[in-house]
Computed example of a mutant assay.
Amino acid sequence: MTVLAPLLKAPGEALVALDFDGTLAPIVPDPTQARALPETAPVLRALAPKVRAIVIITGRPALLAVEYGGLADVPNLTVLGQYGLERWSAGSLQTPPEHPGVAEARAKLPLLLAKAPEGVSLEDKGHALAVHTRRAAEPEVALERLRSILEALAEKTGLAIEPGRLVLELRPPGMDKGKALTSFAEEVGAGSVLVAGDDLGDLAAFAAADALGLPAVKVCSGSAEVAALAEQADVVVDGPAGVVALLAELCEEIS
């Protein structure tokens, strides 16, 4: 029996919830260069009319996910950016005021990172600030060296720390991918859910999928960097190419 069977019983009620980086777009050293695989948008366009809704839940700003994915013309698509703080749908963006702690952290981070190892970079997401170590000579060592510094800054500014694949992100508390998924699933009246991710932040979405009490398929976009998500998944696929192939299979299986 296909792993997709729980969705195929009533595909028109299925919610397809996807992460972006590492799930639809390969992880790259420079996050500004990340792009969804070319086949992503065509597959989503074909799948969208056959399911209840497609939602992308990402730590990225919503507009960047739309741009980097080439997703502006995908019907029936909502993008929840910044872990659910932002919402894009049908060309319209809703975004909240900036948390005051983000501005304070933005002002202090350059000095705190002045002595960081070469290759450490700061990504300003507007509503969050991400410190990347992927381009450092020893990325894991650099990440651990910075962890206590960033945790102290987060505590002082009232922000939360979100760990990821060679990144630590300071963002407003109170929202995560699990809460975003739960709220959206209830909003659209989902009867089943497929949730796909690759990183630690997606654990909350996996837990939410279980807690919804609906038929669910949890998909891990596999990598050597994160094992915890694979342990919770119903199926592990080979990175973004595997995720897109599974979505194409779902589209073909729906009569």
Rank of each mutant, 00 (worst) to 15 (best):
L71K: 06
A142K: 01
L109K: 05
V51T: 11
V131M: 01
E86L: 03
R145G: 15
A65Q: 09
A41H: 06
I56Q: 04
E144H: 06
V79L: 06
Q94I: 10
V141F: 02
P49A: 12
Q94V: 15
T58G: 00
E39K: 12
H132N: 00
I149G: 00
A137R: 12
H132V: 08
P110N: 07
L109Y: 06
A41E: 02
T40A: 13
V141G: 04
V131C: 12
Q82V: 15
L47C: 10
E104F: 09
G69E: 10
A103L: 10
E86H: 10
A48Q: 11
S89A: 12
L109P: 08
G126Q: 07
D73I: 09
T40F: 08
N76V: 05
L111A: 14
R87I: 07
R52M: 11
K125P: 13
H99L: 09
L153R: 07
E104D: 14
P97Q: 10
E144P: 07
V55G: 00
E104W: 07
A41C: 05
V51Y: 02
R147T: 13
G126Y: 14
A130N: 03
V79W: 03
R147P: 09
W88V: 01
T133E: 08
A36G: 12
P97H: 07
W88N: 02
L93S: 10
R147D: 08
Y68V: 06
R52C: 12
I149C: 03
A53V: 07
V74G: 12
A116D: 13
A142H: 05
G126P: 13
L85D: 02
G81A: 05
Q82S: 15
A65N: 04
L109F: 05
L64C: 04
A53G: 07
L47F: 07
E86I: 02
H132R: 01
V131D: 04
A136V: 11
V141Y: 03
I56F: 00
A53L: 01
T133K: 03
A128K: 01
I54V: 14
P117M: 08
S89F: 00
V102K: 10
G59W: 09
E86T: 03
E104H: 09
L77F: 06
A128D: 07
K115C: 08
R147I: 09
A128G: 14
I149Y: 05
E86D: 01
R106T: 05
P110A: 10
E138R: 01
A107Y: 08
V66D: 12
L85W: 08
E86S: 01
E138G: 05
P139T: 08
L111V: 11
V120G: 00
Y68M: 15
P97A: 02
V79N: 01
I149N: 03
A107H: 07
V55A: 08
A62I: 05
Q94W: 14
E118G: 15
V43I: 11
A62S: 05
P38G: 10
A105V: 13
A46C: 04
A53D: 12
L85T: 12
V120L: 00
G91M: 04
V66A: 06
Q94H: 12
L85P: 09
E104T: 15
L122P: 06
T133W: 06
E144M: 13
R145V: 02
A142L: 03
Y83D: 09
R60A: 10
K115E: 15
V141S: 10
E138S: 07
A114R: 15
E140T: 12
